[in-house]
Amino acid sequence: MSQKDETGLSSLERSEFIRRKERLYRRLLAGCALLTIAVTVGIVLSLSGQALTFFESVSPVDFLTGQDWSPLSNEPSYGVLPLVSGTLVVVVGSAVVALPIGLGAAIYLSEYANPRVRAVVKPMLEILAGIPTVVYGYFALVYLTPILRNGFSLPVLPEFVTDPLPVVSEFTLVVPGLVPDINTFNALSASIVVGVMIIPMVSSISEDALSAVPDSLREAAYGLGSTKFDVSTKVVVPAATSGIVSSYVLALSRAIGETMIVVMAAGESPRIPTVPNVFDNFTESIETMTVAMVNIAQAESLGETVAYESMFAIGLTLFGLTLTMNYIAERISRRYREEY
């Protein structure tokens, strides 16, 4: 210290206190960042801890291959297959809705729409992802299912216009019910609404991938005499495949974990899907993994029973499934990021 004073270097060096202060802030901030690791560790520990005690009373083989799920009955049975297949039904249904529509919207927004349209439409589509899922569930149960069963009629003109002019009241839009024998709780309306919810995930991530395709590729294709259709379908979309696929995987992983819509609209009757009449699976009530968890959580005065622990076992399955899917999506999208 005294030597440095002589050479005048001490003025350039921060004092010990300031260095300590900097270190303190650094550590506080690092602590915040490490908290996220703690959350993951907490999730893994809490899930696996209870799940392990569950697997002491129910063997993992029975759990994974059992075809009956009735944890709250007098003779409980813990086979997860009906729940997994229920989840699969919803995922397939929502994929049919969301994947083509989302990709179509993405191509339109990235290739066709002018900037002003895009500036309005893109945020509006993203509102769909922000709507509370409980509102979606309510919509599916109270509005969509009756519409699917009975159709709906919409007076094109409001009453205070038609009242003075009785002739006009004839104009009523009537749409017949598409699925007359649909159950009150059914997989179809739940899947459609889950699909609508994940449209913006597909469209905005895919749109980012499509927009990231360099203009030089488009210009080269136009230079060779391609039409806009050819450029979009044969150049831009193939070049952005990995981004699109990763958006698909992320969206489906969101559909797997979706809870409230399915709880409210799809009911709670675990069943293995019927194979030849695939469509019947959608008109009937099903039960997904998430619904099973909510049902157990809602059953009061449960304590530390096997049913309570089974909730964590399903949670672990769900966590593993979504983690794997997110990891795959991350790998795929990382590959596409390297391309350009």
Binding site: I43, L250, R254, G315, F319, T322, L323, N326
Partner: peptide
């Protein structure tokens, strides 16, 4: 973590 379902 961003992709973990909310039930979990």
């Amino acid at each position: 973590l961003a992709g973990v379902p909310s039930v979990v």
